[in-house]
Every structure is written in C-alpha cells, then in structure tokens.
C-alpha cells in the first residue's frame, strides 16, 4: 500500500519532469516542476524524512518556484517561449544540438541505470525492511545537533553565501539610474 504510493509519486515525478522540459509555455514548466517537487516531498515523507519533506515544500514550493513564476510574469514570457516564436518545436529546433543533448542525456541516464541495477546485487535489503530507527521519524533533534556541532562551519558558510547572494542579486537586478552631468539623480 505504502510502496504503491511511492511508485505513484515516482511516476508523477517523472511525467512532470518530462513536462518541464517539453512544455512550450514557461508557466506550464513552472507548474510541472512544482508538482514534481511535491511528489519528491511525498517520497521523502514515505522514506521517513518528515523534516526534509517540509523543507522541500517550504523552500522549493514556497520560495524558489514562486521566484521563477514571478520572473516569468515580470518579463511577460507568459505566452510562448522565445524559441517558439518561429513556430518550431522547442526540442528539435537546432537538430544537431538537440540530438547531441539528447544523446548525452540518454547515455548518462542509461549508464547510471545500468550501474545502479548492477550494483543493486550488492545492496542486500536490511532485515528490518528499511525501517528507520525510532529517532528517525522524529529526526529533528539529531539533525539539529549535527547541524550546529559537526557541520557548524558549512552552516555558517551557507549563511554567508546567502548574505552575499542577497547583496549580489540586489546589485544585479537594480536598474541603472541615469545620472545627469551634475551628478544628481534624475527625478
């Protein structure tokens, strides 16, 4: 029953991921990706990582994808993608490059799939059937402890990175004000 839910979520994730790549309209892409992340959150939840599932929805759903949607609407790309303006298929407009990209993707995917399936023989199923330890379902204290002791340096580095990003994005996205010769800002 629970396993079936995983396969349903996996199917949804794959289908919506394909939708992200194939959709001509960026808004459809965003909605597909959102659904994909939602089903990934379901998978995290099924695997016993409640906190990750919540973070996935909170950060990806609540922040990142809203940002994507916001930019798509701000730039008014709601219609067709720029590559579709000449009415071409989005995937096969530049045949050589598309074929190359698809070949890389297929090669990469099949290679890793073969590797996973070959290596799977060595991954014996645990006796307790992947049940997480008791604290696993409520992994928050353990997670917090590791985050603020062993991983405190990367944690602080991430905060510095976020701060630097905030400043950088402000500089990048701020419109250059036209400056008059006297050095005064134009009204």
């Amino acid at each position: 029953m629970v396993d079936l839910l995983f396969y349903v979520a996996a199917l949804v994730a794959v289908l919506t991921a394909v939708g992200v790549v194939l959709a001509r309209n960026p808004v459809i892409s965003v909605v597909s990706l959102l659904t994909c992340f939602g089903s990934l959150a379901v998978i995290y939840l099924l695997a016993g990582f409640q906190f990750l599932a919540a973070i996935q929805i909170l950060v990806y759903g609540g922040a990142i994808m809203v940002l994507f949607l916001f930019v798509v609407m701000l730039l008014n790309l709601g219609g067709l993608s720029p590559e579709d303006e000449d009415g071409d298929d989005p995937l096969f407009h530049d045949r050589r490059r598309s074929a190359g990209g698809l070949a890389v993707a297929v090669a990469l995917g099949s290679a890793s799939l073969i590797g996973i399936l070959r290596g799977a023989r060595h991954l014996a199923e645990p006796a307790n059937g992947y049940a997480l330890p008791d604290e696993g379902f409520d992994a928050l204290p353990a997670l917090a402890e590791a985050m603020f002791t062993r991983y405190s340096l990367p944690f602080e580095a991430a905060s510095v990175l976020l701060l630097a990003t905030t400043v950088g994005v402000m500089v990048l996205a701020k419109r250059q004000r036209a400056v008059t010769p006297a050095g005064e800002k134009r009204p």
């Binding site: 909605v31 409640q50 929805i57 909170l58 759903g61 809203v66 949607l69």
Partner: peptide, 21 residues
C-alpha cells in the same frame, strides 16, 4: 504532527500559487 508548525508554514506558503496563477 511533530513538525506541525513547519507543515503549517510550508503548506500555507503554497497558497500564493492560486493567486499568482
């Protein structure tokens, strides 16, 4: 839920999509 507040904030954050879309 053990992470009730987080659940509430995460799901509540999704309501913005209805408005934007």
């Amino acid at each position: 839920l053990d992470i009730g507040v987080l659940f509430l904030v995460a799901i509540g954050g999704l309501s913005v999509y209805g408005v934007i879309l």
